[in-house]
Design a protein around this nucleic acid. Structure first.
Lengths: 202, 202, 202, 202
DNA sequence: AATGAATGAGGCTTCATTCAT
DNA sequence: TATGAATGAAGCCTCATTCAT
């Protein structure tokens, strides 16, 4: 008997979100997704047309926050550079803890030919971001708080220090024999720590 | 033409290595691997029993260097801490450029239930490593070259600063509009840069 | 906009008629039929119980004219044999132009085991028709206007000369590079031409 | 246990040929085809990549004879027009009896958008054929053996008189209560009869 | 060693149909 | 009447794997 429920679409999306990006089962079958959502498999196609489109919908929803973040933050006014980066670090670590596998999918997907999921930044936006970043960065370099480096290298440092730990959570846990509560505590500590590594005298 | 040659096994392994860990096609079928190696598909099973075992063989071979590195380096004598880390950074960046997708697989694999590929370090070894690291790190902290942090956090910093860029090569290239030669140059620069970020006054 | 209208049933039937027998999309899904009719898919089942029964209803409606034609014409009085056949030819060609794919479905359907759509003529009717036809035909043969042949063969000739062109319209258009207006003109010409082929001296 | 047999591909093709074009089950599933051929379903994909390609292979093989026939015959020398048409009629009726459903598929297929199965005649070939036909036909018209008509109409007459009966075999059998042996006899008779209908005084 | 053929499990998707509202 | 949601039975296809030669 059909369970008529207007929230089914949302339920499927949330279940898929968890399976894909929280638990990292990127290759979960529609069968499995339907079962864990407690719905008929056909409904996935009813609402999303194909597995790929479900994946895309979920991915886009999970990415949206991240997409706007860099831009909003870096272009915002009234905050110092270090404040901006501090917020960015915090947001990125939190987001990474929420969806640990989103980054991994991003990496895999970027290497697929003809990927349509990742719409690149427009050239103008990208250039403006790097220009702004470069200016602020040079000030820091002049002050001696950051060693001399290009904006690109700085960006890599920020992202790697924030993203890597979520990606490698299981490995870290095993290597350092850390349980989940302690892992979460470490991640909280990292928010400040990363800033200290990035900016001398922070 | 049949490849009547004792090196067929090696040929398969090398081809798989390239496909899996250099080109990142972690889900390449046996069909494809056999074709690109120019051998019959059955031979994969003749030599490796299953796709999984081929994967494992290739993975182990590619990992072996890395596996021993941490241990060898950190336990070695006659080098200062910064020298040791410096070498480690160099090795890690080079290895990551050679097999960009090895790390990605590691991440994916670590999250599979019942993974048998990654044999954890023995408890004693792990503890000794962290103890040694901790001691040297505390000296640096005392000297003011490194902000106060646990050995685990320091390790995460080292690995993330070295590994992330190989994982995100395509994204970086697109975001910063970098071509391959420039990317390679940036990676070379990173070897020193990472040290400067890790150690103030490097 | 919902179509709140007692003519919904008729609308579905007309749309299906067009889709099935005018455009030849004999395998159109209920989805498509509903969409093109602008109604909800469930209504098809409300009015027709199943896709098959919709098809049957439409088929029967389209066939009805044809069904009675042979009988009415051949049993009618006050017309000569050639006049009767002439009218039959005209009706058949016109009907074929109206529903080009009705004939094709007939062919397909006849070969399905357990087809219930095509109710065979009663034996008595069939025999009487053939007897009447045979008598008139023999008169023509005696007059030398028709070569010696059985009534069955004559019937096949009539039907094939009238029906085939509608069935093969696209092929004819491509083979002979004929556009639709010219095709229609040719079909008009055929009405006389077929008679000339059937009856020498017509 | 695998039944290694070099003729499996041929077996599949022959079975499909029978199912599709002799028995008219144009929508038979790969399941059914495999079962009737006594092979594993996967083999269909091993040899033919997809159901469509199997269909195409079978269709092309069955069509090849027909494709060349019109051309070869009509362009051949040393035969009178009536002889040529006589042979063509004979070949067409025989071919139609062999693959009764080939014609039906052709009809269906011609109406599919983007059909790639039916490669149209080249324009030059088509024009030459019609020109040759027109010339010979005009001679016959002048002699009074054929009523005045265009080459296209003549072609339609030939094809319809030969093809229709195979298409309508089941209907004819039911309508006229004819069993198979008698049907075959009628088809044999038709070879001459069609010529008599086409050419007065044949 | 090497190969082409064969197998079977499972994945994605479509679609007629049913149901609650 | 009308609708959107839900169901389940197929159908197509891929792929790791096995086997006879």
């Amino acid at each position: 008997m059909p369970v008529v429920d207007a929230r089914t679409e949302e339920l499927i999306k949330e279940t898929a979100m968890r399976i894909f990006f929280v638990e990292g089962r990127l290759h979960a079958t529609t069968q499995v997704i339907a079962k864990e959502a407690g719905v008929n498999r056909g409904l996935i196609y009813y609402y999303f047309q194909s597995r790929d489109q479900l994946f895309e919908a979920v991915f886009k929803e999970a990415s949206m926050v991240t997409r706007g973040r860099l831009r909003d933050l870096l272009l915002s006014n009234g905050k110092s550079f270090q404040e901006k980066i501090g917020e960015f670090v915090e947001l990125t670590i939190d987001h990474g803890m929420k969806y640990p596998y989103l980054e991994m999918f991003l990496v895999t997907e970027m290497n697929r030919d003809g990927s349509t999921l990742l719409i690149p930044l427009e050239d103008d936006t990208r250039k403006e971001l790097l220009r702004n970043l470069g200016k602020a960065l040079n000030d820091e370099i002049a002050k001696g708080t950051v060693p001399k480096m290009s904006p690109e290298q700085f960006l890599i440092n920020v992202l790697s220090l924030c993203t890597y730990p979520t990606l490698y959570k299981p490995i870290l846990q095993q290597m350092a024999n850390i349980d989940t509560p302690r892992y979460l505590k470490m991640m909280e500590e990292r928010k400040t720590l990363v800033m200290k590594v990035l900016f001398r005298g922070y």
